[in-house]
């Protein structure tokens, strides 16, 4: 029984269809990646799961209960957390306040203190920056804050949207190591990445998206064998010819 099941998801922006029936599954404890070049609908999928976008068709089930068309706040309450693309840190709020809002769902004072300590252990930099405005942090620090903020709500499923985007290679390494750590700690993770090569090194399974559809699905090994990863990474010639929707 999968934790998250997405069936036949279709979504569109106005008249532009972005997803043409996507089905994915994530089981408890799994680290699954959603791969593909820019604009194939990876973020749209996450936003639809999260209730930020309303799908045209399809069902989304989480822990056996349908959550299609629920509001984002309700879905967060169910235990899904999204680390959005571009970090989306509250720039005018301090690091502390960002984390406090992350703990909004099911807030318990005693647990909150312990959680903070845990975050400081995972991300020591956040302790130093605790009272600074989120907007003053560097890109990598913001990404850590965004992940910490999501963890503060004790999600059952974490969805990471392009966590390595715009980061230095060293920082990218750090983020990928962190994702592995999170998995080892027992988190269930759905990772969206353009950097297919790197993602395939750490994930259990992966889905490969092209033009709003799933082209390949399988374990990391299978995907690596089936697909010329470099072509995915850089964008396949034949794919580039077809009309792509830029999101």
């Amino acid at each position: 029984m999968a934790m998250l099941t997405v069936e036949n998801l279709e979504a569109s922006y106005g008249a532009v269809r972005a997803l043409h029936g996507i089905s994915i599954e994530v089981a408890e404890g799994e680290l699954v990646a959603l791969l593909g070049v820019n604009g194939v609908g990876k973020s749209t999928t996450l936003k639809s799961i999260m209730g930020v976008l309303r799908p045209v068709k399809g069902t989304i089930t989480f822990e056996g209960q349908e959550i299609t068309n629920r509001s984002p706040e309700k879905i967060v309450k169910r235990g899904i957390s999204l680390v959005p693309e571009g970090r989306e840190i509250f720039g005018t709020l301090t690091v502390e306040e960002n984390l406090r809002l992350g703990a909004y769902v099911g807030f318990k004072r005693d647990r909150y203190k312990a959680d903070l300590e845990e975050m400081f252990e995972l991300f020591p930099i956040l302790k130093d920056r605790f009272h600074q405005a989120g907007g003053l942090l560097s890109g990598g620090e913001q990404q850590m804050l965004a992940i910490a903020r999501a963890l503060m709500g004790h999600p059952k499923l974490i969805m990471l949207d392009e966590p390595s985007l715009g980061l230095s290679p060293a920082m990218t390494d750090q983020i990928f190591r962190l994702i592995v750590t999170l998995k080892e700690r027992g988190s269930t993770i759905l990772l969206v990445e353009q950097n297919a090569e790197r993602a395939l090194e750490i994930v259990d399974r992966a889905y490969l998206l092209a033009n709003g559809q799933i082209e390949h699905a399988g374990t990391a090994e299978e995907i690596k064998r089936k697909v010329d990863v470099a072509s995915v990474y850089f964008g396949d010639q034949t794919d580039a010819d077809s009309c792509e929707v830029s999101l």
Binding site: S71, E73, S81, L82, L93, Y104
Partner: peptide
């Protein structure tokens, strides 16, 4: 207060505030 924080957050990034579980 948390509501105050949420309001400041919402004035900055409304959708992201909802992603924290704060009801719009």
């Amino acid at each position: 207060t948390v509501v105050g924080m949420a309001m400041r957050a919402a004035a900055d990034k409304f959708t992201t505030t909802r992603l924290m579980g704060v009801p719009a």
